[in-house]
């Protein structure tokens, strides 16, 4: 047993890497998400509200380039609703038969258009800091959903002695604390269609629920399949053990 423990230590020692490295900054508080845990699934109402927050608040600066409107089916929208959402966007298509690019209303197969034409334009409009794409944000940061939620709600006045430039804000959870992103959420920044009060806390957790899905859209299918696969393998392994015992029983 001792040897097993040591072997396991060798294998998994690397896992501590993440925690050790984040230690300098304030760790984001762990939250209980509907999608955490073995049986956790996405909360569709929260995702729909999160989509609204993204569209009305984040989308001014942040692209969501890996997500197509057709993907919104996973949020519980029907075909008509998706077509309506897509049609609210203008996408550039072409070239047409005259060789010109042209604009048309979005279709379900289109992806969310980016707020800026290219990274240089994004940098020029944002004092040199390119707002990152949000499609994979939850998977692309240590701390994941907890971190992004903490970041969105972690704006405070700078401690004494910390001088901020005009374009900087002080955030408890951002590495180094000085971020070029101004506090994006304020009370009632959006008006939720379902009447949910739009507190900063609520909007932050809604948009994180939405972004958790954009980062890992196959999670629900993955977990459902995983439970079946593991149950099958446990039984199969049990049978194989019995067969093994049976075969070896003849050996004396």
């Amino acid at each position: 047993m001792k040897k097993l423990i040591i072997a396991a230590a060798v294998v998994f020692a690397g896992l501590q890497a993440g925690t050790a490295r984040a230690a300098e900054d304030t760790d984001p508080p762990a939250r209980d998400w509907s999608f955490s845990g073995v049986f956790g699934q996405y909360d569709r109402a929260a995702m729909q509200r999160g989509l609204q927050v993204y569209r009305e608040v984040c989308a001014g600066c942040h692209s969501l380039r890996l997500i197509a409107f057709r993907n919104l089916e996973a949020l519980g929208y029907g075909e008509d609703e998706i077509e309506a959402i897509a049609a609210e966007y203008t996408v550039v298509d072409g070239p047409d038969d005259e060789g010109e690019m042209f604009e048309r209303p979005g279709l379900p197969a289109d992806r969310f258009p980016s707020p800026f034409a290219n990274p240089k334009a994004a940098a020029a409009a944002n004092n040199g800091a390119v707002p990152p794409d949000l499609s994979l944000m939850i998977k692309a940061r240590d701390g994941g959903a907890d971190y992004v939620h903490a970041l969105l709600t972690g704006y405070v006045d700078p401690p004494d002695g910390v001088e901020l430039l005009d374009v900087q804000s002080y955030n408890l959870y951002f590495p180094g604390h000085l971020t070029a992103m101004a506090p994006p959420l304020s009370e009632d920044a959006v008006a939720y269609g379902d009447g949910t009060p739009a507190t900063v806390e609520r909007m932050a957790s809604d948009v994180v629920s939405f972004l958790a899905w954009t980062a890992e859209p196959a999670m629900e299918e993955r977990k459902r399949m995983g439970i079946k696969v593991i149950l099958f393998l446990l039984v199969f392994t049990g049978v194989l053990y019995a067969v093994k015992r049976k075969v070896w029983a003849g050996l004396h």
């Binding site: 073995v38 399949m225 593991i230 393998l233 392994t237 194989l240 067969v243 093994k244 075969v247």
Partner: peptide, 23 residues
């Protein structure tokens, strides 16, 4: 003897592997 023993080991291996891949 060892094919069946290896198969049993494979079952354990795949179970642990599936836990990682799916969860």
């Amino acid at each position: 003897y060892y094919t069946v023993k290896d198969l049993f080991g494979l079952g354990v291996y795949l179970t642990l592997f599936a836990a990682l891949v799916f969860f």
